[in-house]
Amino acid sequence: MDLRICHLYPDLMCIYGDRGNVITLAQRARWRGIGVETRDLQAGETLDPEWADLYFFGGGQDQGQDVVSKDLRSANGNALRQAFAAGAAALSVCGGYQLLGHEYVPAEGPSIPGLGAMDVTTRAGKVRFVGNLLAAAPLGTLIGFENHSGYTYLGPQARALATVVVGHGNNGEDKTEGAVQGRLVGTYCHGSVLPKNPWLADMLLVWALERRHGGVQLEPLDDSEELAAQRSAAEVARARP
């Protein structure tokens, strides 16, 4: 069995240690004897919608988001939509999450169109949310560090990834954090998010492997270090939000 990961725009959209998510996905697959190949997609290159099982789309700086938004309006945007329609999975964080949604509405000026693959919309908020983020999801605790001024609102086709316990999450109003739609996941958790939330890493791995390998059962791993880090980070979030 093998897994193909495409890292979208790694030089522009990979801030706050988001690279750790790709490392985590690859290691957790390798530890189970699954071969992994990772490819980067840079702005201006051509995306092959057939290739990847799993896309990673991280957060970026303003300049990066502008360049990427333009690239997604080219043929690469259609290719990515096609890949998602054919069953590829994705993890998107912060700016990547916003760009998978319908649009980003800045405080002034025209709105920046997103890919529209997730039924979420983001608008610029007045207060920047910076701090530890602890949320509860059906499959486990979600812990990370948020740092965003975009407020994201879910449409009817997306459901929340988790419910905020400490921090702000999507918009600081409705207690939702992140979104799930089909095999696409969006979150505001940096941290990186996957190392300390192994249930989410494994959920994505299963979805990704299913695309070419049918129903997949992952061997369990010894996650004692992962869960110890999750517990200690959750304690920090409760004590020092």
Binding site: G20, I23, T24, Q27, P195, K196, E225, A228, R231, S232
Partner: peptide, 23 residues
């Protein structure tokens, strides 16, 4: 350190064998 367990996890995913590390 206050975030020793995050750091230990980074070493683990960087490939450091369990017996070479102590928190």
């Amino acid at each position: 350190g206050l975030r020793a367990r995050d750091l230990a996890l980074r070493f683990k995913y960087g490939g450091l064998a369990r017996e070479r590390m102590q928190v």
